[in-house]
C-alpha cells in the first residue's frame, strides 16, 4: 500500500518533470556551456573559442556589472519589502466583509492587468519634466521648480520603485489573501474571548498561520523583481548614466544588442547563482510544517 502510493507519487511528478526537462534543462545546460566560450555574433563565421573562466573573471572585474548588481539587489529588497507591507494591508482589507467588496478586490488587481507597455508610457508621462506629477506638485505649491524625476539618479530610482510597487503589489496581496482565507474564524473568535488585541491577533494567529504561503509569495516576488526589465526600459532606458540599469538589462544588451553571446551567458549564469543563493534561504520555510 505504502509502496504503491510512493510509486504513484513519482508518477504524479512525471508531467512536471517532463515538461521542464523538455523545455528548460537543455537551454540551461547550453547557457552554462556557452559561458565558457568566446562567442560573438560578429565572428559567428569563425565559431566559438574556448576561454575557460575568462568570461567570469571579466564579469567580476566589470565595474558596470557590479553597479547593476548592487542596484538590482537594492531594488529587489526595497520593492519586495514595501510590497509585502502594503500587500498585507490590502489583503486584510479585502478579507473584511464590506459593501463593494467584490469591486475592491477586482480594482486592486487592475495595475497588474495593465500591460507593461502601457504602464510604462503612463508612468513616463507622470514623471517626465512637464508631466502630471510635477504639474500637480506645482499647482498645490509643494514645489516651485519642476523636479527632474528621471534625470536625478535618486529620484529616478524612486520613480521606478513607485511604478514597480504600484504594478506588483496586487500579486502580493492576492496570494496573501488566499492564505488568509484558509484560516478559520474560530481562531479569532477564541482570541477575542481571551481579550487579545487586533495586533496581538495578527502577530500570534495570522502571521504564523500563513507563514509558508507568505514565504513562497515573497520568494517568487524576489525572483521576478530581480529580473525587472520592461518597466525600466520604458521609463529611463537605464539612465541617468546607467544608474537604473539592472543586471537583466545589461545581460539582454550584451547578449542581443552587442551580440556578445558568451559574456551574456556568463552574466546570466552569475545571476542564476545569486538567485539560487537567495532561494536557499527560503527552503527551510517549506520544510517546517505550519502549526495548523
Amino acid at each position: 500500500m505504502e509502496r504503491r502510493m510512493t510509486r504513484i507519487g513519482y508518477l504524479m511528478l512525471l508531467p512536471s518533470v517532463l515538461l521542464i526537462a523538455a523545455l528548460i534543462v537543455y537551454p540551461v545546460v547550453n547557457t552554462i556551456y556557452q559561458s565558457f566560450f568566446e562567442i560573438r555574433t560578429q565572428t559567428a563565421a569563425l565559431g566559438a573559442r574556448f576561454t575557460g573562466l575568462d568570461n567570469y573573471v571579466k564579469a567580476i572585474n566589470d565595474t558596470h556589472f557590479r553597479d547593476t548588481l548592487v542596484w538590482t539587489l537594492l531594488f529587489t529588497g526595497v520593492s519586495v519589502g514595501i510590497e509585502l507591507v502594503i500587500g498585507m494591508g490590502l489583503a486584510l482589507l479585502m478579507k473584511r466583509k464590506m459593501p463593494g467588496q467584490g469591486l475592491i478586490r477586482t480594482a486592486v488587481l487592475i495595475p497588474w492587468a495593465i500591460p507593461t507597455v502601457v504602464a510604462g508610457i503612463i508612468w513616463t508621462q507622470f514623471f517626465s519634466q512637464n508631466g502630471m506629477i510635477n504639474y500637480i506638485l506645482q499647482t498645490i505649491h509643494l514645489i516651485e521648480e519642476p523636479l527632474s524625476w528621471l534625470g536625478n539618479q535618486w529620484l529616478a530610482k524612486l520613480s521606478i520603485l513607485i511604478a514597480d510597487i504600484w504594478k506588483n503589489t496586487p500579486y502580493m496581496s492576492l496570494l496573501l489573501l488566499s492564505g488568509l482565507l484558509t484560516i478559520s474564524k474560530d481562531y479569532y473568535e477564541a482570541a477575542q474571548i481571551d481579550g487579545a488585541t487586533r495586533w496581538k491577533q495578527f502577530t500570534c494567529i495570522t502571521v504564523p498561520l500563513i507563514r509558508s504561503t507568505m514565504s513562497v509569495t515573497v520568494l517568487f516576488r524576489i525572483i521576478s523583481a530581480m529580473r525587472v526589465y520592461d518597466l525600466i526600459v520604458a521609463m529611463t532606458g537605464g539612465g541617468p548614466a546607467g544608474k537604473t540599469e539592472t543586471v537583466s538589462m545589461y545581460a539582454v544588451n550584451t547578449y542581443f544588442t552587442y551580440g556578445n553571446t558568451g559574456y551574456g551567458a556568463a552574466l546570466s549564469v552569475l545571476m542564476l547563482l545569486i538567485s539560487i543563493g537567495i532561494s536557499l534561504l527560503f527552503v527551510d520555510s517549506l520544510k517546517t510544517k505550519g502549526s495548523v
Binding site: 502510493m5 504513484i8 511528478l13 537551454p27 540551461v28 547578449y255 539560487i276
Partner: peptide, 27 residues
C-alpha cells in the same frame, strides 16, 4: 505527490525546479 506520498528527494526536486527557473528568459 510532494506532500502526501513518501517519495524521496522532495527537497532536491523543489530546489532543482526552482533553480532551473531562475535563469533569465533571454537565454
Amino acid at each position: 505527490a510532494l506532500t502526501r506520498t513518501r517519495i524521496r528527494f522532495k527537497t532536491t526536486f523543489l530546489v532543482f525546479v526552482l533553480a532551473i527557473s531562475l535563469l533569465p528568459t533571454i537565454t
